[in-house]
Amino acid sequence: MSDFQLYLTNTAGLSSVASFWVFVASNGTKRFQGITLKVANGVMLLGFVALTVAIITRGIEAQRFPLANLYESLLWFAWATMGGFLYLCRSYGIQQLGWLASLLAATMFLYGSWLPQSQHDISPLVPALVSYWRQIHVPPLIVSYAMFFLAGLSGLLNLWQAGRLRSLAYCVGTIIAASSAIGLGTFSKVDTVWLQLLFVLSSVVGPFLAFASLKVQDAAIEQSKSAKKAAEMYDDVGYRCVAIGFPLLTIGIITGGLWANHAWGSYWSWDPKESMALVTWLSYAAYIHLRIQRDLSAEKLSIVSVIGLLLTLLTYLGFNSLGFGGLHSYGKFK
């Protein structure tokens, strides 16, 4: 990895951390809020541009499409998160999502930087990956995952603005528990059985408790008209993210099928990672039909989008780091 590229990636990583703090700080001051938010957005934009250039130069240096291992896919994920937020911010002006998006990008940078050096090095490709299909298949998937994460985070903000603080706490707790399982699975020697258990149990119990406690609503927030309006907006933003992510996931899965058929003669082989993508796809198809049906309240849909986030996390990082195996080894390095 060249110094220039390292420098750019670090700039992007640091700016995601910086934008997080500026977004957080903007809540502390009513008077300077406008300007702090502009600054935060600017910092985010800087990081986004730096990362774009870093990814391009990595591709030039490696003389191949720079999306071939976990580290590179994390860079793409962070890129899509930042880009997705900047896009949403332009059309919605949703600043509170800013610190969550920054936090997400920063976490991915941190996760990526802790990976062993072999991941950072530009390594040659195994036979199966030597194909132009790679650049058609993987980017839509990574971007869709990022959009689903943003949808889940909007769901959290919706719960917040709807005054469902207890449900929110359960959702946040679940996300933290599930991510910890993945972090430990990647970097520690803890037996994966315990981590699988942690992930699965928290993903089942957390959302269940969140649903069960939707009745508890903060009275002060309930009265506030502005909170109600904001809640509606986050609901809409979440749907928008899914509306963008779902076609991308569909395209990713289908192009994966085309590639597999071209390379191995079968477009579907029930490989665990493949199956997980299908699970995620079916869940978001269910989400979309629930939306159309409108039987569920916005808050319930928000919890559904958090469940979607957990499934996306499991598909993207969980299956390899929690030791479920599979052929899609690019997510694996142990």
Binding site: S275, L282, A286, F319
Partner: peptide, 12 residues
């Protein structure tokens, strides 16, 4: 769809 997703999840 949810049942199907759950089934495939177990299969995975």
């Amino acid at each position: 769809m949810c049942l199907m997703a759950l089934t495939i999840l177990i299969g995975a």
